[in-house]
């Protein structure tokens, strides 16, 4: 029992970190511009396919492939912002929700036609497994979790230490004032959307290395990201990491005690309850 629990716990934590950076992308965008990016899932799916194609077509190491995939996410996000979001940034919520959802439909529509909906996977099991006492984990999971932590660290340094990162935080804090002191807020917004999308594609890529996927898989992870974001506080990137761990733990540990099908019930009930009781999230919202 303890062994199973330990194994589940480890599994949960490892996948939780990856969920965490996916949610970080979502929460970063919300924190900066108050937009819930409903194209988040499909962007993650594009990250999955990015890693998949670079790995299968060009034989690239899937972890190295995350770099060009992340860069692609950045550009894609900036384009999405410019085309779909900028015009509705100050409009009522419904507008930005529907604008990003229309991007979701476009990506899924084209993606389904291009890639079909058959399952793919990045077969990188050659990395082997790691055994520590009762726990055996595929090394890919461990490396993915470490990569996710690395990305988190880089993001943190970027936001705290670089001029552009400070701009992002300033715009998140108060767009009007940031504009008044000469920060090019539209460009910072576009960049932030790009950054959020880059995190999404990287998270997608990391998931693709461990789990099979289709172009539609993103929506599952998008919903998970919502749960995580709310757990950690909307707009709070550090909260997202913690929220990811919590969700990972729930997914890892709950099936030990009850049917797996109860996991989503718990997740979503928790999600709604937190929105109601503590909308600032467990750790508090942005700022």
């Amino acid at each position: 029992m303890v062994d199973t629990l330990l194994a589940s716990l480890t599994d949960g934590l490892l996948i939780g970190v990856v969920y965490g950076i996916a949610a970080m992308g979502l929460t970063l965008i919300f924190g900066v511009m108050n937009v819930i990016n409903l194209a988040h899932g499909p962007i993650m799916a594009l990250g999955m396919f990015g890693v998949y194609l670079l790995f299968t077509q060009f034989g690239m190491n899937p972890y190295l492939a995350l770099i060009p995939v992340g860069f692609f996410g950045l550009i894609l996000g900036i384009v999405i912002y410019a085309v779909a979001v900028n015009r509705v940034i100050d409009a009522p919520h419904l507008s930005s929700l529907l604008a990003t959802f229309s991007v979701n439909m476009i990506i899924i529509g084209l993606g389904t036609a291009l890639f079909t909906t058959t399952f793919r996977n990045v077969d990188y099991s050659s990395l082997g497994t790691l055994t520590l006492g009762p726990i055996t984990v595929p090394l890919t999971r461990l490396v993915s979790a470490l990569a996710a932590l690395l990305v988190t660290g880089l993001l943190y340094l970027f936001l705290q230490r670089t001029r552009l990162g400070k701009y992002v935080r300033a715009v998140a804090n108060n767009r009007t004032s940031a504009g008044l002191v000469g920060i090019p807020s539209t460009r910072v917004l576009a960049f932030s959307f790009g950054l959020g999308s880059a995190l999404a594609t990287i998270a997608g890529g990391l998931i693709a290395i461990s789990l099979p996927f289709t172009i539609l898989s993103g929506s599952t992870y998008e919903l998970k990201s919502f749960v995580i974001v709310v757990l950690g506080g909307l707009g709070n990137p550090v909260g997202a990491l913690i929220g990811g761990l919590v969700l990972g733990l729930i997914e890892g540990v709950v099936p030990v005690f009850m049917k797996t099908t109860w996991v989503p019930v718990l997740e979503y009930v928790l999600f709604v309850l937190i929105l109601l009781v503590r909308p600032q999230g467990l750790l508090g919202a942005k700022r």
């Binding site: 959802f101 229309s102 991007v103 979701n104 439909m105 476009i106 990506i107 899924i108 529509g109 084209l110 389904t112 036609a113």
Partner: peptide
């Protein structure tokens, strides 16, 4: 095949 994208 891309009706979803067109609708989007």
């Amino acid at each position: 095949d891309i009706q979803l994208a067109v609708a989007g």
